[in-house]
Design a protein around this nucleic acid. Structure first.
Lengths: 120, 120
DNA sequence: ACTAGCCTTGACATGGGCGTCAAGGTCTAC
DNA sequence: GTAGACCTTGACGCCCATGTCAAGGCTAGT
């Protein structure tokens, strides 16, 4: 399939697909006229990338998943590199959640105080 | 005091202070040679801005707090505009925390599965 | 008079994942 | 043969708070 169809079937844009290729995540065969040609495997790769991005991973984080899938595994996660990224992300999420809880507490306290002062 | 001292006493940079001024959050008197001149009130304003930015507010969000302080209140929060920003931020934080919990659950599940598959 | 350390404005760079436009090549249908 | 729908590469724009550099003015101390 060509880039437009791939974009449509993955819910993204041709711009993004070229961007992924530019960063070495996707490689496309070219037809004789220079058009990119993709197969079903690429479809899976892009879907993996998109779902990871959606959760909050950045592009670089998706690389091990893509390579894992390309190596023939059933899922992109069952490789050491992916597992390491997942572990790191889990820790990131925990610290991020913790920081947000702190911020939330600060904001809530500030809000309660401000309302008090405002009403008095 | 001049801009360098203000920057140092607020733990920021002269660049940032000029940026705040450019966006109407800070107004500086000028001495005869064109230098910006700040007083203790400006010190409080900048500290308010910095602490809000640190929690995760953006510059625009700090505006009502600055105006509140400038109107003579004891804190930047005890004004309707500030209270509204705080309420909005509280909701933002809650939805953000919720989304992160969802992501965390996804990542954790993925990680557990991946480890299983990898060990088998 | 000169140096060093302040200050001024203006402007370009950063990051990340794209959107969007330009200028052009290719293929299909009529 | 021509319109229109695809494709190509390249490049600039965005957001936002800030870093950083350039080119120059002011002032205190020696």
């Amino acid at each position: 399939m060509r880039i437009g169809e791939l974009a449509e079937r993955t819910g993204t844009s041709t711009r993004s697909l070229r961007y992924y290729e530019q960063h070495g995540l996707l490689e496309a065969r070219r037809t004789s006229n220079g058009y990119r040609e993709y197969d079903e495997i690429d479809l899976r790769l892009v879907r993996e990338i998109r779902s990871l991005l959606e959760i909050g991973f950045n592009l670089e984080d998706t690389r091990p998943f893509v390579e894992c899938l390309r190596s023939g595994r059933a899922t992109g996660a069952e490789c050491p590199g992916s597992i390491e990224v997942l572990s790191r992300k889990l820790a990131d999420l925990d610290s991020c959640i913790a920081r947000l809880h702190v911020a939330r507490a600060l904001v809530e306290r500030e809000l309660a105080q401000a309302k008090d002062e405002w009403e008095s």
